[in-house]
Simulated assay, not measured.
Amino acid sequence: MFNLIRRDVILQKRQLLLFIPFILFFIIMGAHPALTFLIASIFIPFNTYAYDEKAETNILLNSLPYTRTEIIASRYVGAVIYMGLAIGVTSLVFFAFNKPFTITDIAIGSSLFLLFASVTFPLFYIFKPGYIFPIVMISFLLLAGIGPASVTFLAEYLTVITDFIVDLSVPALYTGATLIIVVVYVISWGITTVIYQRKAF
């Protein structure tokens, strides 16, 4: 399985050269650190899916001595590993340019990435190749644009939920959010595995 994860990095050697300039652009433009961490986390996993769509890699992968469960596991485990590496590199870039960020920014960025991955990873195996990647990227940009406004709107009009969240202690809030995100990610992993097991290549 870890050879499959390594394969993604090897295939993206050229794209990885663009990673730091890509992150630098958002930092210089003054994007919120949480958004920068989110975008950095998305870079490798979604580039991998884009490459696989073009090359029809799933036909090749299914001819190798890996089970379909292992192929999907490599996607989900790999996404977490790449997220950790991306956050580490992005943090170093923030330090190098003396730009402030907090642990909360990292937590928000990584949480949003895991939720976004949970929703979109199964879609890559439901829709036809060539269609889903543009849809996912457009959806991401729309969510990035309207997401903060939606949260503000909900906070104003759903005061019962807002008051409940405000009353929680910080450790309880972080623990609850972490558990919810992990559960959603594991459920997504299971759904994607079932879809992939039944898919014909």
Rank of each mutant, 00 (worst) to 15 (best):
T90A: 10
T90L: 10
T90F: 12
T90N: 09
T90K: 15
S91D: 10
S91V: 04
S91C: 14
L92H: 13
V93T: 15
V93I: 15
V93Q: 10
F94A: 13
F94M: 14
F94S: 10
F95L: 15
F95S: 11
A96S: 08
A96W: 00
A96I: 01
N98I: 01
N98Y: 04
N98T: 02
N98W: 07
K99V: 12
K99Y: 12
P100T: 12
P100H: 12
F101L: 08
F101G: 11
T102P: 09
T102A: 05
I103R: 02
I103G: 13
I103L: 15
T104G: 10
T104Q: 08
I106N: 01
I106P: 00
I106T: 02
I106S: 03
A107N: 00
I108E: 06
G109R: 00
G109P: 04
G109H: 03
G109A: 06
S110L: 02
S110D: 05
S110Y: 03
S111Q: 03
S111G: 15
S111D: 05
S111W: 01
L112I: 08
L112C: 07
F113S: 01
F113A: 00
F113T: 01
F113M: 04
L114G: 00
L114Y: 01
L114H: 02
L114A: 07
L115R: 02
L115C: 04
L115V: 10
L115H: 03
S118I: 00
S118N: 03
V119L: 13
V119Y: 13
V119A: 11
T120L: 07
T120K: 07
T120E: 06
T120N: 14
F121L: 00
F121T: 01
L123K: 03
F124V: 05
F124D: 00
F124R: 06
F124S: 10
Y125D: 12
Y125I: 06
